[in-house]
Amino acid sequence: MKIQVGESDFDPGAEISALHAGQPRVGAVASFVGLVRDLNEGDSVTTLTLEHYPAMTEKSLRAIVDEAGERWSILDATVIHRVGRLQPLDRIVFVGVASMHRGDAFAACEFIMDYLKTRAPFWKKEGTPQGERWVEARSSDETAAERWKG
């Protein structure tokens, strides 16, 4: 498992390759890349600043990946989340999951993203022409995470 939280960018292709390099049992790698959009709530966004709770962030991401590993058969996983000041077109987050078959990789990747969005301690502040504002949590994200229960 690889968990990385920091300001530096990442190479999605390299991360995907690393998830199966020298691992002949891996038959599937599913991945997700989240990007900074230039539009939110109808306003143009020029900057996105990500704050986090350093002592808790990696711990919570590790717990989310562990939980995915209890639900699906996964062979390896990578979660990278950037913090600090970003701008439209920048990559924010990478989740990659390697497994024997695609079903486990797809499901675990989506689960990790849904839980990351509702449980990992990150907060976004966006800069718009009207000034800076904290991004409000979306109930649709909570609904997406809830469907994995039960």
Binding site: L50, I92, A120, F122, W123, K124, D141
Partner: peptide, 24 residues
């Protein structure tokens, strides 16, 4: 670790209070 208002706390604990998270 995410907690609720009925989570017990004791001397030396670190408590964080924050708005709903918005990462990803």
């Amino acid at each position: 670790t995410l907690a609720g208002i009925v989570t017990p706390v004791q001397d030396g604990d670190e408590i964080a209070i924050f708005p709903p998270v918005t990462g990803g």
